[in-house]
Design a binder for these strands. Structure first.
Length: 910
RNA sequence: GGGCGUAUAACUCAGUUGGUUAGAGUAUCGCCUUCACAUGGCGGAAGUCAGAGGUUCGAGUCCUCUUACGCCCACCA
């Protein structure tokens, strides 16, 4: 007998168990060749700030799977860690120092990076702390960061290796450039806003006919100074004959050709486009396709350079006015029409972004994509839900080269050096020196004056190595330092199996990982690239399953974000409702995108409290717990258990099996619904109610206790804290629930007959309860129950257990005599339908009751009519499967039976 | 513009290969606290499964179209 508090006090419990789990180091995976591994790598949260609801969802999903697999007997390794998130983190720190009135240039590279590392320390630690509060059972000693020294080695190694293979090259590229901040911006940093601008129509004259020409339309007329072609759609009848003709660029008098390119939309503007390869991303692509000249007309500060002729020295917007004026005077300006279009602005200073030509590093993606594409096509890697496969394949089919250089300071510095020694510009020293470690001198001219590339690598260029760089690749290389990566069945089975290098490495043991849990928006950025890296560097898939979860939104459907102010902080929920409540509520809502408001977390809080109180009831009433109480044995011995006990045991195992399957199929919300239905709807609402006055029976005690224990195991992956706490009261000696084995599905404990009979009985009880409130049945009134059951066996069971009804006085508050009427041909009876036929006692409202029954009769009649119609249809009988037809026949018979009963009832009322 | 998705009770959503009278939670409305839990119990009401066609003996489920909404990618010369 143990007394527990009335409510689940989650605050102390949450803290206690996250501490205990960590102290006991329960989640640290050992290299254990006797066990199959199950590995998950965390999508490393950005160290930009604290965790949001999306993280809470993402990590809860992973934790459910990991805890489940751990209990299932796998050697589970959930690799935690954080991502340096180059641009994003640099931005937050730049904002921070901006408050001190400084720019990063004021601090200098070294000092600025110190600030970033300080930031990383603070927020990285906070993130890990938050993960622990959430209950995440990560392998904490393995925690990694994408800029750890060994991880950086992996990044450099990869760069050099790809460069040597010819997969990395340096090329020209159009980037977003802020002429005020003098820095490149990523696409994400370019804020696009609709601007009321103008569309300027300008005539470019033919070389051989100054009077005629082609009219082009542009929003940025100043860029015309850099035009090197005019493009039209090859199928455009208006221009087809002009393709290949030469035009003269006004003001500059450069001769340019008319080219044909499918990119041009004949519907837009005049259908002819001026092509400025150095100042527009599309024109850049066209320029490449058609081998056009790239003429840069601006200085980095957007002041026109010498290519601009007379306009040299003026700012881009002044130049626009001046150029329009000149064109107008020279009669080349045809018209100006207002035009709204989207223009990128610098997210910091809101200056209009200039597309600017610059040198960047690229990865050739086509050769890397091939095996990654095939792996998904042939099912070696599966997406859940499956539809994301299409999204992935669609992108991989249209993959483009990856620009990996970034003009920022926070990140992995590009491992490339340039010789700036004497005469470097003249001789081949211009070739970059690509090396994992800093070279002492130029290998070509011997000069020691070398300079490292200023840029850093894209964040994803480190994240794409996450599944194996976290396991110390390339210090440990598969097949070189050990036996190499193994598929599950090839992995060494025993500890002392001889392998090359003397031992099995973590990398070989844990790689490939099992599943990846992530958000849809990074399928391209991250998932696809990890698959490519997996094949390129490990020769194998990085994971087998990819589970894509929904986006967390607020009640209005907006993405949760700090700037919108609609974000709900997971920690706030944990403090107010508990971590279990947060976890449960998030997952139960997680079918697709989640629409979250605070009240939704009450579901989880209430459920945790319900579990707590069920345990409280059981612990208050159990006195003689038999450690060897064996449910399966009891189920098999006849008469060992009463119907409700048989039923609840069977319900548990049925649910267990469904829950296991749901988890395996990544159907987490379904698993929670099943658990809720079983534990609350079956166990608490019925079983515990029924046995309330039978605690003296030790078999009942032990059954309730055992079902509670089993349920705790089943619920643990979803709600680890409350289950762990209760388990510690149940079994002091067994240790943490987190490492208990998952209940074994026992067929002997599944008893469909009992479930069937109980379903009938439950309806019967409901009917009696109903009768009590509706008809004011008095104690000792006699109620006759007419019902039909599927088989004689279940009828026997019912009759045998009819006594239960008498013991339900708490519910019915009446003493009940039951009379069962069994239909002559039981096989044609209807399972699970009960009708109370002869209520005795005073009716509250005869008319109302009559109406109710008449409505029922009408409904029944309609149903029976359509059913008999269907059964009379020869095509149905012929084509439908036999069991369907049989079922329908039984249904009809049941309906008729029920109809009779209702008729009787109404007759009785009159 | 390309790709993907969603539409089921007042709200949030289940509904797995087509086959009982379409389910749950919340909210609402009754009735109920000595007896684990009011973060609770019992019961009621609440649905033209977005609309229109089609396939089928049979459609919430499959196909086509329409409407509305959402996401991702590209683009706005």
């Amino acid at each position: 007998m143990i007394e527990l508090p009335k409510r689940f006090e989650f605050k102390e419990v949450d803290d206690k168990w996250s501490r205990v789990w960590e102290e006991k180091n329960l989640f640290h995976a050992q290299l254990n060749p006797a066990k199959p591994p199950y590995t998950v790598v965390i999508p490393p949260p950005n160290v930009t700030g604290i965790l949001h609801m999306g993280h809470a969802l993402n990590n809860t999903l992973q934790d459910i799977m990991i805890r489940y697999k751990r209990m299932k007997g796998f050697e589970t390794c959930w690799m935690p860690g954080t991502d340096h998130a180059g641009i994003a983190t640099q931005n937050v720190v730049e904002k921070q120092i901006a408050k001190e009135g400084k720019k990063r240039q004021d601090l200098g590279r070294e000092e600025f990076l110190k600030r970033l590392w300080a930031w990383k320390k603070e927020y990285g630690d906070t993130i890990i702390h938050q993960l622990k509060k959430l209950g995440s059972s990560c392998d904490w000693p393995r925690t990694r960061f994408t800029m750890d020294e060994s991880y950086s080695d992996a990044v450099k190694h990869v760069f050099v290796s790809l460069y040597k293979k010819g997969f990395i090259y340096r090329g020209e590229y159009i980037i977003n450039w802020c002429p005020r901040c003098l820095t490149a911006l990523s696409d994400e940093e370019a804020e696009h806003r609709d601007i009321q601008g103008n569309l300027y129509h300008i005539r470019y004259p033919f070389k051989d006919n100054e009077k005629e020409g082609v009219v082009v339309a542009t929003t940025r007329p100043e860029t015309m100074l850099g035009d090197t072609a005019v493009a039209v759609n090859p199928d455009d009848e208006r221009y087809r004959s002009l393709i290949g003709k030469t035009l003269v660029l006004p003001l500059i008098n450069r001769e340019i050709k008319i080219i044909a390119d499918a990119f041009v939309d004949p519907q837009f503007g005049t259908g002819a486009v001026k092509v400025t390869p150095a100042h527009d991303p599309n024109d850049f692509e066209m320029g490449r396709r058609h081998n056009l000249k790239f003429i840069n007309i601006m200085h980095p500060n957007a002041v026109l350079n010498k290519e601009a002729g007379d306009f040299e020295g003026s700012d881009r917007f002044e130049a626009r006015e001046a150029i329009i004026e000149s064109l107008r005077e020279a009669k080349y300006l045809v018209k100006i029409e207002p035009h709204t279009h989207s223009v990128g602005h610098c997210y910091r200073c809101h200056t209009v972004i200039e597309p600017y030509l610059s040198k960047q590093w690229f990865v050739k993606m086509k050769p890397l994509a091939k095996p990654a594409l095939e792996a998904v096509q042939d099912g070696r890697i599966k997406f859940y839900p499956e539809r994301w496969t299409k999204v992935y394949l669609n992108w991989m089919d249209n993959i483009r080269d990856w620009c990996i250089s970034r003009q920022i300071w926070w990140g992995h510095r590009i491992p490339v050096w340039y010789c700036i020694g004497e005469g470097a510009s003249q001789h081949p020293c211009q070739e970059p020196i690509v090396s994992e470690s800093a070279p002492d001198k130029c290998p070509r001219c011997g000069s020691t004056r070398l300079q490292q590339d200023e840029d850093v690598l894209d964040t994803w260029f480190s994240s794409w190595l996450w599944p194996f760089a976290t396991f110390d690749w390339p210090q440990v290389r598969p097949g070189v330092d050990d036996q190499g990566p193994k598929t599950n069945d090839q992995r060494p089975k025993t500890q002392d199996q001889e392998v090359k290098g003397g031992k099995v490495s973590d990398l070989s043991y844990f790689y490939p990982t099992a599943s990846l849990f992530t958000a849809p928006e990074i399928i391209f950025f991250w998932v696809a690239r990890m698959i490519m890296a997996g094949f390129e560097f490990m020769g194998d898939i990085p994971f087998k399953d990819v589970y894509i979860h929904g986006t967390v939104r607020d009640a209005q459907g907006r993405k949760m974000s700090k700037s919108l102010g609609n974000a709900i902080d997971p920690l706030e929920i944990i403090n107010e409702y508990g971590a279990d409540a947060l976890r449960y509520s998030l997952i139960v809502n997680s079918g697709q995108d989640l629409f979250i408001s605070k009240e939704k977390f009450e579901i989880g809080r209430n459920f945790a409290n319900k579990i707590w109180n069920a345990a409280r009831l059981i612990l208050m009433n159990t006195t003689k717990i038999e450690p060897d109480f064996d449910l399966a044995a009891r189920m098999q011995s006849d008469g060992g258990l009463d119907l409700p006990s048989r039923w609840i045991i069977s319900r548990f195992y049925t649910t267990l099996e469904k829950v296991s399957q749901a988890i395996e199929k990544f159907r987490f919300s379904e698993a929670e619904t099943l658990i809720h239905e079983f534990f609350w709807g079956n166990f608490c609402d019925w079983y515990l109610e029924m046995i309330k006055d039978k605690w003296g029976d030790t078999t009942i005690q032990n059954t309730a206790f055992k079902i509670l224990e089993l349920s705790l195991k089943m619920i643990h992956p979803f709600m680890p804290f409350v289950t762990e706490e209760i388990f510690s009261y149940l079994h002091k000696e067994k240790g943490a629930l987190a490492i208990q084995p998952w209940p074994v599905f026992t067929k002997a404990c599944v008893d469909p007959k009992s479930e069937e009979s109980m379903a009938v009985l439950l309806e019967l009880i409901s009917a009696i309860r109903n009768a009590r409130t509706q008809w004011n049945v008095k104690p000792n009134d006699k109620i006759q129950c007419l019902f039909a059951a599927k088989s004689e066996k279940s009828i026997d069971l019912l009759r045998h257990n009819a006594a239960i009804l008498k013991n339900l006085s708490r519910i019915g508050e009446i003493s009940i005599t039951t009379e069962f009427t069994v239909p002559k041909n039981a096989a044609t009876g209807l399972t699970g339908n009960i009708t109370y036929a002869i209520p005795l006692g005073d009716l509250i409202d005869v008319e109302q009751e009559k109406k109710r029954i008449l409505t029922q009769i009408e409904e029944q009649r309609k149903a029976a009519e359509s059913l008999s119609k269907r059964l009379q249809n020869p095509q149905f009988v012929e084509k439908a499967p036999g069991d369907v037809v049989q079922k329908e026949r039984e249904r009809l018979a049941g309906l008729e039976q029920k109809n009779n009963e209702l008729q009787q009832a109404i007759a009785h009322l009159e």
